[in-house]
């Protein structure tokens, strides 16, 4: 099976560009500085002591910082995927080749994802600090990385879909950040609001919709993956907490990709070429 030419070209361009190693360096610097700063604060007053829960604290900090950076980097790298081609006036030529629009969309997204995955994988050595002191199982680290992959998938699909829909990258980027913010913060706020509104005089389980909103919130799910189970609410749903997240993110991400492929196809979408 040969690699889609768009993917090959994108990877070639991306990894040839000086910006890519600089971004990796900056990403590692930010996460590394956070972790080392945290360690410094912990051990400053108690040198020579070992506390397994400190190691756990580092792990949580590292993982949450990484989630924050993924939420920051992914829209930035994907929200110009299609609109950038449009702005550089290369899209029309691409659309007159024999490549399918779905193939173009998926390849664009894969090239962005591959770079984000590289960023995440590049932070693996930092996790060694955690393993140095113990307190964390390798399966937890794997769980966190699996969680990242699923999260990146939807965030990237949102970016690609916005860049397909909006003609200009600026609008697409702002919208993608808005949607990622809505998933990361809006769902919790809305869930809390629903719980407060429906709260009666007697203790009752929270409404299903509030639970579902919590279940698609990356921060809440991340905390549960990290073993901070006190964050999760009592639940009547028979599915494990991560399954709703997995199903929602993969389904919505895939639907967005399908939609983007159709939207980009000039033989289907009337007048899209001239949207402002």
């Amino acid at each position: 099976m040969s690699i889609n030419p768009v993917l090959l070209k994108e990877l070639r361009q991306r990894f040839r560009n000086i910006k890519s190693p600089l971004l990796i360096a900056l990403y590692l610097l930010v996460i590394g500085a956070l972790v080392l700063g945290f360690i410094y604060l912990l051990w400053r007053h108690m040198p020579g002591y070992y506390r397994p829960d400190s190691s756990r604290g580092i792990f949580i900090l590292l993982s949450m910082a990484q989630l924050g950076l993924i939420g920051f980097v992914t829209p930035g790298l994907t929200s110009g995927a299609i609109s950038g081609e449009r702005e550089r006036q290369t899209l029309n030529v691409l659309l007159t080749t024999k490549l399918s629009t779905g193939g173009i969309v998926v390849s664009k997204m894969l090239s962005s994802i591959s770079f984000i995955v590289l960023l995440v994988v590049a932070t693996l050595p930092l996790y060694n600090i955690v393993f140095l002191y113990g307190g964390i199982a390798p399966s937890q680290v794997l769980g966190v990385f699996g969680f990242y992959m699923v999260t990146i998938y939807l965030f990237a699909a949102l970016g690609v879909a916005c860049s397909t829909y909006f003609k200009r990258t600026g609008v697409s980027t702002v919208t993608t950040y808005g949607l990622v913010f809505a998933l990361g913060v809006g769902t919790v706020l809305l869930s809390g609001f629903i719980i407060e509104v429906t709260r009666g005089p007697f203790p009752t389980p929270p409404p299903l919709i509030a639970l579902l909103l919590m279940d698609i919130n990356p921060v809440m799910v991340m905390l549960q993956v990290l073993g901070e189970s006190s964050v999760g609410m009592e639940r009547d749903i028979w599915l494990p907490y991560w399954s709703i997240y997995l199903i929602f993110y993969l389904t919505v991400g895939t639907l967005l990709l399908f939609w983007s492929g159709r939207k980009l196809n000039p033989s289907r979408a009337r007048g899209t070429k001239f949207r402002v």
């Binding site: 070209k9 070639r12 361009q13 560009n17 006036q89 029309n92 030529v93 007159t96």
Partner: peptide, 14 residues
Amino acid sequence: IGYMPDFFGVYDGL
């Protein structure tokens, strides 16, 4: 067909 639009760009870094 081979199509050449009135305005077109090329890819950087290729």
